[in-house]
Write a protein that binds this DNA or RNA. Sequence first.
DNA 1: CCCGGATGGTCAGCTCGGCGACAGTGCCGT
DNA 2: ACGGCACTGTCGCCGAGCTGACCATCCGGG
Lengths: 243, 243
Amino acid sequence: MDLGRWTALLRADAANLTSRETQIRDAAWIARCVGRGAAAPLGPQDVAGLAERITPAEFRKDELLFGAGAGDRPGVWIVRSGHVELGVATSRGRVVVGVLRPGDVEGDLPLLLGIPVPYSARAMDDVVCLYLSPTDFESLLARHPAVARRWLSSVAQRLATSHGRLISLLGRPLVAQVAGLLLDESDQGTVRLPQRTLAAMLGVARPSLNKVLKDLERRSLVALGYGSIQLLDDDGLRRVRNA
Amino acid sequence: MDLGRWTALLRADAANLTSRETQIRDAAWIARCVGRGAAAPLGPQDVAGLAERITPAEFRKDELLFGAGAGDRPGVWIVRSGHVELGVATSRGRVVVGVLRPGDVEGDLPLLLGIPVPYSARAMDDVVCLYLSPTDFESLLARHPAVARRWLSSVAQRLATSHGRLISLLGRPLVAQVAGLLLDESDQGTVRLPQRTLAAMLGVARPSLNKVLKDLERRSLVALGYGSIQLLDDDGLRRVRNA
DNA sequence: CCCGGATGGTCAGCTCGGCGACAGTGCCGT
DNA sequence: ACGGCACTGTCGCCGAGCTGACCATCCGGG
């Protein structure tokens, strides 16, 4: 998906389309992203229910979306364009829990469970989000069973990913962890994150990560660039991950 | 909750109660456990919907419930009594992903996502489960929105736990990881797992874990027993976890 | 065009934890 | 009572990865 074009469209919409039309298009987009591949399809009335509740929100690079320092604004955020970093400040420096890409959802768990988010979200570039207030989210789930069903798939998907991440971290050599992370975070064969961030995602020191990456480059599995990594041999990386 | 008494009751029920009465009692129990504390209450018809779908299943110690070696039986399992170990065999020996206690649910994710479970489940002692077949689970969610809503909370709860686990593992010293694990797995101030298993849950070697545990014991934070650990100072352990 | 900040690459020293082995000890069935 | 088994406690060696430092390179803005 061409993110630049999406963003441009969003900007144009603000001027050329009615607010209602924009909302419906955004709602349909959410319907495609949340609970992808779930059995239950959403009806037109479900999409309409979504549309009348979402409001767009823009953030500039390095702005905080929620969490410590941003007033802990409750509600559901769906990333429309851009990237968002979920991080925790620990005694041993910053740890990155995850990176949100367009289509990813955050903020629903705290609402569902009534607990605060343990991390804070920072815009890694200019970001456009769609926002659902806590009450809107609650009524959406209550009145639209199909949406609740899809949301269930979405959360289940994230849980499966988290489990996979746990397995790939538990006592495995760093090369295997790195190979797994690159495969998970790649977008069209490229990972557009600085090594500093990747290291924080694995909770390791940057020099250690760099050593491993150079090793993978020597084995022609990846190509290192400035702020980006190209995956050259996915199957080879998978072998390293499972070794 | 006194697990011994529950098990005894279950045995007695098989003889003294009709199958239907047992099912309704089990269903009510599931209703209490799944999505604990969720906003949406279940109506009597929801509990009835659960009751007519569940079937009990017993497993002896060391028996495999599902996963590699047990035919990968699809369906949802709810632990009624006993403990179940979720483990993965890796190149570097066994890794324990988690331990299921009474009230815990497993097997729903593969159904929701259409993917196989990446781990296998082994009964750590004699275990009684309640079973939902894939088709029954699907129809339950489709026809009982309140159950789907509760199930959403249940999955969200597990996702939050998994996130917490990730944060507590990422590049933290072993003492902090151990303190966190003990706090998570304790039941009434006691962890009834052999050190071998605890080590597998953190993906570390047993001698390393033992060294840390003895250290915690010297600091009067825990008391080590045979196959069990008593937590003496929860606040102290929390301090160690966050250090 | 140049400069400052961010990112990538590398090194030496050191600590933590893995690995394997072995002894002591509680638990349980015979 | 006894013996086997599983669990705990401990040691020594060694390699993986952390610490902190330093310089090269890339990029965007003035």
